[in-house]
């Protein structure tokens, strides 16, 4: 749905741009394609890898591993799965809700959601291309640590 809006706005702006200057528009499109092609191989590999990873993990096992009383191990697993995988939000939130219904703890789920969104281990090769290794490592490490704070706070307040 949101995608349609984005495509529509892009199309509209492209038309305006074409009317204003054919040459500049072609330049913009060329730049767009070049930048896209630059990360495409990594992107394809990442999407294939994540599909495989998630298919190999089964949801019932995850629910058990992330249970209310799973303690430190549950937190470690939640953060590892969240950090490594790359799941679209429209899949992740319903999955998280399902895991909660199946007995997963709120702290564990908050940690999973937070690391999922902020930490990107598999997208490391892409991020590194833009920002270099040092910033990429620092950003992800900090986001990882921060996710624990978010999760602990949420667990304390929502329990």
């Amino acid at each position: 749905m949101y995608g349609i809006v984005v495509y529509f706005i892009t199309g509209l702006l492209l038309v305006f741009s074409l009317i204003a200057s054919r040459k500049k528009t072609l330049m913009a499109l060329k730049k767009a394609w070049r930048s896209f092609e630059r990360i495409l191989p990594e992107l394809i590999a990442i999407l294939l890898f994540v599909g495989l990873l998630i298919a190999l993990l089964n949801p019932e096992t995850i629910s058990q591993l992330l249970g209310e009383s799973s303690g430190v191990w549950g937190l470690l697993i939640a953060s590892a799965v969240g950090s490594i995988t790359l799941i679209p939000g429209f899949v992740a939130f319903p999955t998280a809700a399902m895991l909660l219904d199946n007995g997963a703890g709120i702290t564990q789920i908050a940690l999973f959601i937070s690391t999922l969104m902020m930490v990107g281990v598999v997208t490391f090769p892409v991020e590194k291309k833009y920002f270099g290794t040092r910033l990429t490592v620092l950003r992800n490490t900090m986001a990882f640590g921060f996710s624990f704070i978010v999760a602990e706070l949420m667990g304390m307040i929502l329990r």
Binding site: Y7, V50, G51, P88
Partner: peptide, 27 residues
């Protein structure tokens, strides 16, 4: 089969925003 269906949905998510993002950036 599961792996490919998950990759497929991620790929759709990618296609729903990434190409326009690059065009908007070019503009």
């Amino acid at each position: 089969r599961n792996a490919l269906s998950i990759t497929g949905s991620s790929f759709l998510e990618m296609l729903s925003v990434i190409p326009p993002i690059f065009i908007l950036l070019g503009l």
